[in-house]
Design a protein around this nucleic acid. Structure first.
Lengths: 295, 295
DNA sequence: TATATTGATAAGATATCCTGATCCTTATGC
DNA sequence: GCATAAGGATCAGGATATCTTATCAATATA
C-alpha cells in the first residue's frame, strides 16, 4: 500500500538528487530510504529515479509524481495545522443554539468578549425554540445550547448562568408609581400579551400568573418581544419582560417597567450540552464567559 | 506520525457511524481500527469521534478533518491512476529532441502514427542543433534524441533508423539531364550554399565535398533548408539536400534534384538515449515506429 | 592501479500492527 | 430488576514491516 512515508522520502530524494543526503534529511539510514523508494516504485509500477553510478536523475514521471506528492504533503500539513489550531481551548467550530428571547440581548455582549478572549473560536449560531434546540442538541446538529433551565434530559448536562428576573411592562399612560412592587394579584383584569406558542417565555409567564389571566391571554401570540412591547406601548395590555431585554428594548417612554415584589419571579438561564461531548471543558469556559457578560 | 491508513480508517468510521462496520469495510478487525482512530486522535490532539455507549458521532472538527482527508485520499488515488497510466508501454511523457534538418520532414509523418499506435504517449518536442540536444540528453533535460549518427558518447545508446541519401539541388535553368549521376567533382566551381555553423548537415556536406568548395561556401549561412533552397531557385548556387526533405521542399520547379553516383553520400539518422534510462524499451519501440514511417 | 563515492543488498534487531479473546458500559426486553 | 445484546476498549501474543549496521558492487578520480 502507498504510504506517506514513501512520498516524503521520495521528495527528499527529488530535492537532494542524492540518496545519502536525502536519508539524512528525513533522519533515517540510507538503506532504509533506498528501500522505501524501491517499494514506492514497485507500488506505482514506475521508475521514478534513474540511477547511474555517480549521480541520479528523476524521470519525467518522477517529477510529475513529486509534484503531486508535494501537493498531498502540503495538504497533510494543512490538516495537521488545522487540528493544532482546533485543539487549543475554545477554538475550532462550536455550534451554539440560543432561544429567541435571549439571542438579541445576550449575543451583542457575548460575541465581542468571546472574539477578544478566544480569537480561534468559530461560533455557528442558530436561533429557535427550546424544543428544537434540545432536539438538535441530542441529535448532534448542535453542540451547546443557551436556554432557560431546567431541561432535565438525562443525557444532557446543564449549568446555570444567571437568574433573569421578570419585570412587568405597562403603558406609561397608567401613571403607576415605579417604586411600587407588584404582586401577581396586580395582573387581575389586565390584558396579558404573550409570545406565540412554543416560546418558553410564554410558558413561564403563564405558570407564574397563569391562573389569573388565562382567558385574556388567548387572543395574542406575537412572534417577538419587540412586537409585544409595541402593543404594550400602544395601550393594548401589559406583558412580562425578562430583565435582560430591558436595556435594549425600552427606549420607548410610553412603557413603564415595574418590578415584582420578592420573591421576584425569574427564569434561570443556563448552558446545556451532551454529557458525552468531548468539549465539556470548553462549554464550562463558555459558561464563565457568559457569566462575565451578564452580571 | 500521521499515516494514510489512519485517514482511511477514519473516513470509514465517518461514513458508517459504526466502528464494526467501518472495520469490515477496510478489511481489518474492529480493535485494529479502534487503535488507528485512537492514534489519529492522539496525533492530532483532537477528539474526532464522540463515543456514547450506543452510537457514535463525528465532532465538527472530525467532519472538517474528514473533508480534508477525503481530498487527500482522492489526490492519492489520482497519483496512483497517473502512475498506472504512465506505466503502460510508450506512455507518459517523453521529451524528444530533433535536429532542424529532420524535424519539419519527419514529424508530420511520425506524430500521427504515434498518436494512433500509442494514444497514451505525451511527446514534448524540442528542435535545436545536435550539440545542444546531446548536452541536454546527458543532462537529463531530454529523454531521447533523433539526429544524425554517430554521436559516440560512451554513456549514450544509439540505434540507426535509416540512411538519408544526399541529393544535389541545382537551379532548373541549368538544364542538366536529371538522369545524370553526379560525382563530387561536378561541384567544382559551383557556389555551394550551406546552413549556418552548428548544423550537422553543414558539416556532413563539407566533409563530403569539403576539399572542393571550401572557399566559396564561406559566404553563406542560412538558418533553414527552405531558405537555402530559395537561394538555389534564385540561381545563387547549389546545395546538398537530404532526400527526406525532398518531398516537402521541392514544390518549386525552378529547382532540379540530381542524384549522386554510387556510393551515394548519405547521413545515417538514428535515435539516441542514455544507456541508464529506464525506458530503453520504449525508445526501441519508438525507433521501430520511426522506421515504419521512413521507409 | 589504488581510492573514494554512491547506491544496493543482507542479516539481525526493533517497532508496529493485527487478530482473537475478553471486558466494560449502556440500552432493551421480560 | 435482571438478563441479554450491542458496541467500543483493552490486552496478550504473534505476524509484518521497518530500521540499522556492515558489506558489496560499480564507477569515477587521482
Amino acid at each position: 500500500m502507498l504510504t506517506f512515508k514513501q512520498l516524503r522520502y521520495f521528495l527528499a530524494v527529488q530535492q537532494h538528487h542524492h540518496f545519502g543526503n536525502a536519508a539524512e534529511e528525513v533522519c533515517v539510514s540510507q538503506p532504509a530510504l533506498s528501500m522505501q523508494i524501491r517499494d514506492l516504485e514497485k507500488e506505482l509500477g514506475l521508475c521514478l529515479v534513474e540511477r547511474n553510478a555517480r549521480s541520479i536523475r528523476i524521470t519525467p514521471e518522477g517529477e510529475e509524481i513529486a509534484r503531486r506528492a508535494n501537493q498531498i504533503l502540503r495538504e497533510m500539513q494543512d490538516l495537521k495545522d488545522y487540528a493544532k489550531h482546533a485543539a487549543s481551548p475554545l477554538s475550532g467550530i462550536i455550534r451554539l443554539g440560543v432561544i429567541p428571547s435571549l439571542a438579541p440581548y445576550i449575543l451583542p455582549k457575548l460575541l465581542p468578549a468571546l472574539i477578544k478572549q478566544y480569537p480561534d473560536l468559530q461560533l455557528n449560531l442558530r436561533e429557535t425554540l427550546t424544543a428544537s434546540l434540545v432536539s438538535e442538541l441530542k441529535h448532534g446538529t448542535l453542540d451547546v445550547v443557551l436556554a432557560a433551565l431546567p431541561i432535565e434530559e438525562p443525557e444532557l448536562e446543564e449549568v446555570p448562568i444567571f437568574e433573569d428576573h421578570f419585570l412587568l411592562a405597562v403603558s406609561s399612560s397608567r401613571k403607576i408609581d415605579e417604586r411600587k412592587r407588584m404582586g401577581p394579584d396586580d395582573l387581575h383584569g389586565e390584558n396579558l400579551l404573550l409570545l406565540e406558542e412554543g416560546h418558553c417565555l410564554r410558558d413561564q409567564t403563564l405558570s407564574f400568573c397563569g391562573a389569573i389571566s388565562q382567558n385574556q391571554s388567548a387572543n395574542v401570540g406575537a412572534t417577538s418581544i419587540a412586537t409585544v412591547l409595541h402593543m404594550v406601548a400602544a395601550g393594548y395590555g401589559v406583558t412580562v419582560l425578562p430583565e435582560i431585554c430591558a436595556d435594549t428594548e425600552i427606549a420607548d417612554d410610553r412603557i413603564t417597567l415595574l418590578r415584582f415584589a420578592e420573591p421576584q419571579p425569574s427564569r434561570r438561564i443556563g448552558l446545556i450540552w451532551r454529557k458525552t461531548s468531548p468539549k465539556s471543558e470548553d462549554y464550562m469556559a463558555l459558561a464563565r464567559c457568559l457569566r462575565n457578560v451578564t452580571n
